[in-house]
Design a protein around this nucleic acid. Sequence first.
DNA 1: ATGAGCATGTAACTGGTTACATGATTTA
DNA 2: TAAATCATGTAACCAGTTACATGCTCAT
Lengths: 196, 196
Amino acid sequence: MRSQNAPSLLGLLSLKPMSGYDMKKFVEESIGYFWNESYGQIYPMLKRLSRQGLVVCRVERGKGKPDRRVFSLAPRGRKQLQNWLAAPPRYAPPRNELLLKLFFGRLAGRAEMIRHVREFRQHHAQMLIQYSHVDKWIWKTHRKHPDRPYWQMTLKYGLENSKGMVKWSDQILKSLARLPNRGKRTGAKRRKGGVR
Amino acid sequence: MRSQNAPSLLGLLSLKPMSGYDMKKFVEESIGYFWNESYGQIYPMLKRLSRQGLVVCRVERGKGKPDRRVFSLAPRGRKQLQNWLAAPPRYAPPRNELLLKLFFGRLAGRAEMIRHVREFRQHHAQMLIQYSHVDKWIWKTHRKHPDRPYWQMTLKYGLENSKGMVKWSDQILKSLARLPNRGKRTGAKRRKGGVR
DNA sequence: ATGAGCATGTAACTGGTTACATGATTTA
DNA sequence: TAAATCATGTAACCAGTTACATGCTCAT
């Protein structure tokens, strides 16, 4: 299966029939913390999946609103999805800008790094709260849904991750506090009077 | 600063003069757990940075070996790098295939998910060991290097992260063990005799 | 009236990988 | 003698984002 994002669309349709528009929204508000999709890929891919007979499309005439092209999973699509699910997941090549900045951090100065890490910490602290909300919400609204346990596993991932990240941030902020502002100056000449 | 990967190259040159080839190796064996570069970007970008006067190039005639074009950071490059370091890091849009598979996991069956998570756990357990080795090695070989603390902060990130991931894996494997093999069957008709 | 939401779609762009070409030298 | 290492580089490809066009309805 070429073109990376096909499986995610099939996956979404395995939950319920959706339009491209629905998919985008669903992704954003439920698995947005580990996945994303843009229209630029959704629509062309849906067309393609249709051609290949992996999904089927039915048009809902919109009264007043634009028409909706609602797709659902065809048997062949379901099989394809199952195959993909069983195949080992690939690691995305990692690219973490925060860490890159931190790695060369001395050059910018400690204060800048503190700012970055603080922001990072804040983000994950925020996420922690959100995760717990979502978890509660899932229990409430999908207690008996057979997919519920799987959904919560992914949630726990986010939780455990953010927990670790907050912990890390706290360690780092402590380390940074103990550091001289720019280590020993390398090559950079000391200026006369100015404070910059 | 356009073209994403320019800063990383400048960063590398802030440590010491390098050839494109050196950079690739350095990245692989030291910051590979959070960054990567391919020749397809390094070489064109170096040419460009030269043109812009951010780096300077000196050719080392190789006896027997091919020539080396060794680049070093020009003052303007250093300034540019510092600016970049001080700017807030951007989040990469997240895309985690393991989680995507897990989210739709029921469809493939519990056994498959267990396999995936086991592999994931193993990977991070492995990383944990590696991180501690690297940490020791840094202490030994760069005890007094002014960048050392920053390097170790990024290492700690990897460590904390992998720790969390192992913990998560263990939780998840327990949850999965408690799950029925495919939840309630949805739509799939029970076949007569076969075991598949 | 202004903007947000519904809904579909595409063209242009960007960032990045892969695979290859070259060719000498060292190692197994 | 086969393969890995050193070293530079490019062309073709791929995945993915952004920005835009269209146009109706509903709430503010």
